[in-house]
C-alpha cells in the first residue's frame, strides 16, 4: 500500500493500518505527536480507531526538546 508521509511517498507492508499501528511502525508510539490526515488534525482519542487508506496524505509532527 502506498501513502504519503510528511510529503514523501512510502510503501507500507501493512494493509490499512490504524494511525496507532503507523506510529508503532515509525517507533513513535507513546511520543508527543500531532497527526494530520488528509489536511485534518486527528484528535488524540481517535488515533487508535482511524485507519489509513491507499493514497492518504499523513503528516506526523513529533515534539522534540533539544536545542
Amino acid at each position: 500500500m502506498n501513502i504519503i508521509i510528511n510529503g514523501k511517498e512510502e510503501q507500507m507492508a501493512l494493509q490499512e493500518p490504524t494511525l496507532e499501528q503507523l506510529l508503532a511502525a515509525y517507533s513513535l508510539q507513546g511520543k508527543s505527536v500531532i497527526i494530520e490526515a488528509n489536511g485534518q488534525i486527528v484528535p488524540k482519542e481517535k488515533i487508535g480507531s482511524t485507519t489509513v487508506k491507499e493514497g492518504d496524505r499523513i503528516e506526523i509532527v513529533q515534539f522534540v526538546g533539544g536545542g
Binding site: G7, K8, G39, I41, E59
Partner: peptide
C-alpha cells in the same frame, strides 16, 4: 507548526 528532517528529507507544516 512546521517540522522537518534534513537527513530523511521530509517536511511538514500543519494548521
Amino acid at each position: 507548526l512546521v517540522s522537518f528532517d534534513v537527513w530523511k528529507n521530509t517536511y511538514s507544516s500543519i494548521k
